[in-house]
Design a protein around this nucleic acid. Structure first.
Lengths: 218, 218
DNA sequence: TTCCATTTGTTCGTATGTATG
DNA sequence: CCATACATACGAACAAATGGA
């Protein structure tokens, strides 16, 4: 009768995803308390067990934190943030910056050597997105990171991709800082990204290496 | 009456720990099927929910794998092994090698700049251990990795240390292969390690970078 | 201080669905 | 088709911790 009733996904997973979405969208802010289990039962029309299973999953992932006799609180707004908070609670911005510098060049090099047509498509997509979002610095930075991640994926090295994705969320504020402090104009920064873009899609590994170094020097 | 009845720990946790112990001790081997849920209920004298919760925890941790309509199987003998299998199951040796090359040089450079007396002590310890274990190739390789990890720690960059440690377990067979295929003699390889060792403890960043590159070229 | 309502934690029981052999 | 075994979901009861009256 109802196509939506194809319930290939368990109720707890559905609840979990919905909660995660609400958290990531800021509906429940970091540090705040989410509704009680009885309230969530009412909201989602499922049993307490199902609610608890969903909460347990998000707790394991580090997004939530439960306090007996008090409530369930939002610990992080995303899995990445949770991962970083858990794993790298004592990491400095310098550490992140160094790690980025370390792998960015290798990634650019490998991406130029290995990028496939579908990689080019993705890279181009985010390159253009980045170029068209010059007004809003925040949005531009997000697109910037997406551009770099697309290049990382073109490297086809699963370890490097994983590392880059893990630290990329922390890069956001870092990149923004650099841009604001930079001596270079927006046009010059754009040019550097275009250099990297062209080098990668033309499979010029040496040029990609140089372009990556130049971007890191911003 | 019975000291053991202090049940500060939940039943499911107790069952979980007991199962994990049995798995790690090899009572249930990797790939084999553990008893069915009803059997486990009988064994531990708890409800099916409790059994299932314990199994779910170990499944999440990657130690077990449940197959509906078939049984529950041992996937890994320890959490560490599980973590590796889960995260880098599709990683090739080339990926690891590339990632290593990528960060090894940066690590050597930073270690030379930042190593403290206590770092020198550790590096020296494993340097000597490595030198004195020339007979057994396997032991030598282990000491080799410990030597490199000591250097990584001297970089004082938590992210790079973490990454290096994560991939180092996969490095063992890789390094062994390289040694066996190498054109260089044991003495020459030793010399390269001594170069790196001396460069780092003398805070010579450039020499450390070069030494690291030479070692990677083995 | 004690008491109590709230909230999460733990455990049990039961029913039904789904996959395998 | 059937027995077995895991998957999912619901309901219920009590324990334990918290915070406020």
């Amino acid at each position: 009768m109802n196509g939506k009733l194809i319930k290939r996904e368990s109720l707890s997973k559905q609840v979990s995803k919905e909660l995660e979405k609400m958290i990531s969208e800021g509906e429940y802010e970091v540090g705040s308390k989410i509704p009680t289990e009885p309230d969530l039962m009412e909201m989602f029309q499922v049993s307490r067990n199902t609610i608890r299973e969903a909460i347990q999953g998000l707790t394991m992932a580090g997004l939530l934190e439960t306090k007996q006799g008090n409530g369930t609180f939002v610990r992080a707004s995303s899995r990445f943030e949770a991962n970083m908070k858990l794993k790298y609670s004592e990491v400095s911005l310098d550490d992140i910056s160094e790690a980025r510098n370390c792998i960015e060049i290798t990634i650019a090099h490998l991406a130029a050597l290995r990028c496939q047509p579908e990689d080019v498509e993705m890279i181009e997509k985010y390159y253009n997105k980045r170029k068209n979002l010059q007004v809003d610095e925040r949005e531009n930075t997000k697109a910037d990171i997406e551009f770099h991640i697309a290049i990382a994926k073109a490297s086809h090295n699963l370890i490097l991709i994983d590392i880059y994705q893990t630290i990329s969320d922390y890069l956001e504020s870092h990149i923004l800082d650099r841009k604001l402090e930079s001596q270079l104009s927006t046009q010059e920064i754009d040019q550097l990204h275009e250099d990297l873009f062209l080098a990668v899609i033309h499979n010029d590994a040496n040029a990609a290496t140089i372009a990556a170094k130049n971007i890191l020097a911003i």
